[in-house]
């Protein structure tokens, strides 16, 4: 009898703890950051504020991210596992985009969905290997970059019945490139 209870309890334990997904985002220290990336971070302007380091794990894939604030703008710089830049994202607002781009993006949302609501908008500068990493970052931060950024938009969209939060990518002209559906648990947590 006791054994049976124990087995049931063990099964429950398995049910509770066995579901752990291998997806994790955590804050780390500078010393845990890949060495190759440190040089780029050191080259950032001295008056960068709120420099914070993060590590993301998704299954076996790892990536690193450093977030900071410079001249009232929020940046997030992403690195691969071995410290090569992937992209630099700058938080911005929809109303600050050019009229032409705004119209194009709005048309896309209106044509594709019943309802939409923009939650977050970032300009995304994609890094290509032929560039020097330090110049790439500093040109963007100091606003002297000639490169046009993609637009990454997190929005809540409603089609006929379903409603979900998606991350859309638009090219610099405001033309739709792709989207992915975000996991709802990454957007809601505690309160009900």
């Amino acid at each position: 009898m006791k054994l049976k209870v124990l087995i049931v309890l063990l099964c429950f334990y398995q049910f509770v703890f066995g579901q752990t997904k291998n997806e994790k985002e955590e804050r780390i220290t500078e010393s845990e950051f890949p060495e190759a990336a440190i040089e780029v971070i050191k080259s950032l302007p001295d008056d960068c504020k709120r420099l914070r380091f993060y590590k993301e794990t998704d299954g076996k894939k790892q990536s690193f991210e450093v977030k900071f604030k410079y001249k009232r703008k929020r940046y997030s710089l992403e690195f691969s596992e071995d410290g090569v830049i992937e992209d630099l994202e700058v938080l911005t607002k929809f109303k600050l985009l050019s009229e032409l781009v705004k119209v194009k993006i709005n048309d896309y949302f209106k044509d594709s969905f019943k309802k939409h609501k923009i939650i977050k908008l970032q300009q995304q500068y994609v890094y290509s290997v032929e560039l020097n990493a330090i110049t790439f970052v500093n040109n963007i931060v100091k606003n002297t970059s000639s490169e046009a950024p993609n637009l990454e938009i997190i929005a809540e969209v409603k089609s006929d019945k379903e409603r979900d939060v998606r991350e859309f990518t638009f090219n610099p002209l405001g033309e739709f490139v792709n989207f992915r559906i975000l996991n709802p648990t990454s957007y809601e947590h505690v309160l009900y």
């Binding site: 752990t20 994790k24 985002e25 993060y54 947590h189 505690v190 309160l191």
Partner: peptide, 20 residues
């Protein structure tokens, strides 16, 4: 009026703690 945040990073992952 309530305030809540995960204790590690900006996203609440499995196994992590949070404050409310």
């Amino acid at each position: 009026f309530a305030l809540d945040f995960p204790l590690n990073g900006e996203k609440l992952d499995i196994g992590e703690a949070y404050l409310v």
